[in-house]
Design a protein around this nucleic acid. Structure first.
Ligand code: ZN
Ligand code: ZN
Ligand code: ZN
Ligand code: ZN
Lengths: 144, 144
DNA sequence: ACGTTACATGTAACTGTATTACATAGCGTT
DNA sequence: AACGCTATGTAATACAGTTACATGTAACGT
């Protein structure tokens, strides 16, 4: 019964000490995964920790994303823990998603961000947030 | 039966003359809409033209997207007709989506595309396709 | 004409993703 | 205790997309 689910519930919340129980569980699950997880994937991994409904996961994800601790990959309907220990990153974040192995590389490029600002400024568009997702093959998988 | 659904079915396929019936209907619906439509929105608008199941819409959308005549907005789970009469655009396409009025502005920025290429090259990442979606307020709505 | 292939279509059932609505519980403030 | 605020629990529902299987239809070679 000491299932594998415990290994992240055990050390709880390393990343921020004011997460609620569900937020800690969800972030722990994401951080221990080697790839993006859908909300239902997360739910399944947390059933033995007492979670039973999708909403519990979505609520936690919303809070985590507000704080920049997790990100949503729109093109996958899936979520990842922020790769930057405490991202809180404003502005553009980009993700390179390997379609072979599923690995996701998070990065920020100030030049792209600035270039985007130029475009928006020229048109009077007020940018709230930007999602940028690159699909392809990572170096490892491209070599194979 | 001279329903309103005819006004795009009537002149059929202006954009490409080798579309199938369903492809023409779906593209016509997208082209006449003033904003993005979900697959089920499209289906509802085409019931009087005989469409009855989601798959009929998804199949048409797949073909249209293959040909660059329609695009998917990942962050909305919705679709638009390509704004460029015959896009066939390779490389990066970006969308600025107004969260107030729903209008979508499609554009391509070679500099961002190039910058992305630099990033990918440095890491050996083989880019297949990129989605870039900017959320915010268009000039009109920002003024109000 | 006939069988064969390729592609478009029709329909139902189903899986997966996300939200609405309502009830409950904990906690700090007054 | 009463209040406001946040987190939680649960069920039901809405929205999005796919699988499986059957049918139609035009092109091609025999
Ligand atoms: Zn991050
Ligand atoms: Zn890979
Ligand atoms: Zn286009
Ligand atoms: Zn607007």
């Amino acid at each position: 019964m000491a299932g594998m689910g415990d290994d992240h519930a055990g050390h709880d919340h390393v990343w921020a000490d004011d997460l609620t129980k569900n937020q800690g569980l969800v972030l722990g699950t994401l951080a221990h995964s080697d790839g993006p997880l859908s909300a239902y994937d997360i739910l399944d991994k947390l059933r033995e920790d007492g979670l039973r409904a999708p909403l519990q996961v979505y609520r936690a994800l919303d809070k985590l994303m507000e704080r920049g601790l997790a990100h949503r990959l729109e093109s996958l309907n899936a979520f990842v823990a922020c790769a930057d220990a405490n991202c809180h990153r404003r502005g553009l974040i980009a993700f390179a998603i390997c379609e072979d192995c599923g690995k996701v590389d998070e990065f920020a490029d100030p030049l792209i961000d600035e270039r985007l600002g130029v475009w928006a400024g020229a048109r009077g568009f007020a940018v709230a947030r930007t999602t940028m997702e690159i699909r392809g093959k990572c170096a490892n998988c491209a070599a194979a």
